[in-house]
Each structure stands twice: as structure tokens, then as C-alpha cells.
Write a protein that binds this DNA or RNA. Sequence first.
DNA 1: GGTAGACCTGGACGC
DNA 2: GCGTCCAGGTCTACC
Length: 305
Amino acid sequence: MEFKLSARQPFIFASVVRSHGWVQMEPFYLKEESGTLFYALRLDSGRLLETCMHEAEGGVSVETFLPQPDKDLSAYEQEDLGRKVRWMLELDQDLGAFYQLAEEEPKLLKMIQRVQGRVLRCPTFFEDVVKTILTTNTLWAATKRMNKNLVEQFGEALDGKGQVLQTWVPMTGRRAFPTPERLAQSDEATLRQQTRLGYRAPYILELARSVASLELDLEALKNSGLPTTELRKRLLAIKGVGGYAAANLLMILGRYDFIPVDSWACKMVSHEWYDQPVDKDQVEAAFEHWGQWKGQAYWFWDWKE
DNA sequence: GGTAGACCTGGACGC
DNA sequence: GCGTCCAGGTCTACC
């Protein structure tokens, strides 16, 4: 099955895909040569399928592989699939107001030329939160390893017609991201030692259990309409989510009022303006005048080499 | 409200 | 091969 989704213009598929590191984290898979993005997706109905996304005129083309090809997607499942892809690629995002401001800033001209500003998102906010916690206090290689372990140990396999799937997707053993329910059944010792999450294990477990028990509705935060400061408070209430992680998650939700300040941000700001070590407050101050767009200005800034 | 120390992993380095 | 040091955010206890 193949269909096309239109995007609010301007739009460049590759700019969304390469907006940050999520594309390197399973179940995303990028075929570099063609720029084709794969994602092993779970629909709300529980059905698993492989999706293949690539640039198309005016938007994106989506192909699907069904492990059970004899059973077509229902109308509801097709609608769900389209909605999820629109969310993941921010197809409806309007950055016109920011682009107008950015035109006055030479350090953001490349961003405008490349039509950057959208960020790649996971279909569920639960997955975005888990992955963000995995980025904290560790190196990128370790983040990817922890995520890979989670998917391999707890993600459901798209086995179906395995051989057919393997000729279509350039990698084997495709699995969807673990559901909160599946992770909630695990225990801290397993997550610590086998999944190698270390001290993050109780955070991920608590998060999964509170989502699985419906005590916490993370998906409701996607289009909540809450003020950004209130949204930030809700995110900071999650164990393992501090200032950096909350700002990162706010950007994923389309709120750019805060900067995800990490050690890299301090290095970049130091190199750009100070030539001496800077702290979090100085990073914030450097972008303060961008107001509600400061996260975007920071993220897509054309830093000195 | 601010600060210090613990948390945990894996890579780099010296021996 | 082994031991040590270090980087990376967040939490908690303490002042």
C-alpha cells in the first residue's frame, strides 16, 4: 500500500529526518543512499507494520509492509497511520513567524535555506520521553546502545512473512518500540543489568507503570493547549526528567521557550561569544531576545567551526 | 534557593 | 589485561 501526505510549505523531508539524533535510534532506520526513512510502527489497533517514507512533491510518500498481507488495513487503521506520520514529520507545523524573524539574523540564514525547524518525533510521546531520559548523563553511543537493548529485549517483532520483509527493509530483526504495558511487566534488576540502563532503570520502570495504569496520560500532552510553563512543570514531575530533558521534550511538542542546555551547549556558546567557560544562565542569556523561539534559534544556529 | 555528592556506564589512558 | 579517571544530567540530602 502506498499513499501521499501533503505538508504545509515550505517542507524538505531530509531536513526533518536529520533534525536530530532520533533517526539513529531504533525502530527508525535511515537508508542513507536514498534518504528513505523506515519505521516499525504499532497502530492503535495493536497491529504492527513497517513503514517506508520518502520525499514526494508537496509532501511525503508513505509505503507500508504488512506482515499479514492478506488482511488489509481498515479505514480506521489507515486514518491512524496517516495521523501518526503527520505527527512524526510535523507536516502541519507552521514556522512562518519564526522564519520572518530569522531572516534578519545571518546565523540563521542557512536554516531558512535548508527549510529546517521541524524535528523528527516518535509516534508516541511515551517513546520520546523514554529516549530523552536515555540521552541524559551519558554519551551518545551509550544512549543508542540502551535504546537498542530496550527494543531488542521488549519490542514486539514484525515477524510475519520474514523473508519478504527482509528484502524490502535493508535490515533484519525489525521490532516495534516497547509498549508501556510490556515495560511495566519488567523489573528494575532486569532493566539495570540486562538492558544496561543503570540508575535510569527505576525511572523508566516508574514511567512505564504510570502510563500503563493510566495514572499518567502522556499522549494528552501532545496537543494540550496548556501554557508552556505548566507543560514544563508536568514534564519536570517525571522522575529522570530535569531541565535539559524538559526543554528537549518541549521542543518536540512544538514549544521553543526553553533551551536544552547541556555540556555541548555550554561549549558552543563559549566558543561563539566568550572564549571562556560559560554556565547555563549565560547560554540562556545569549538567546533570551528570541523569546518564544529561543529553542529554535539555539538548535539551528550556524555555530562557528 | 543553592550546593555537594551519588548515581552508572563505557571509553580513554597508563601501567 | 587491569585499574583509574573522566564525561554526561538528575536526584536527594543538607545548609
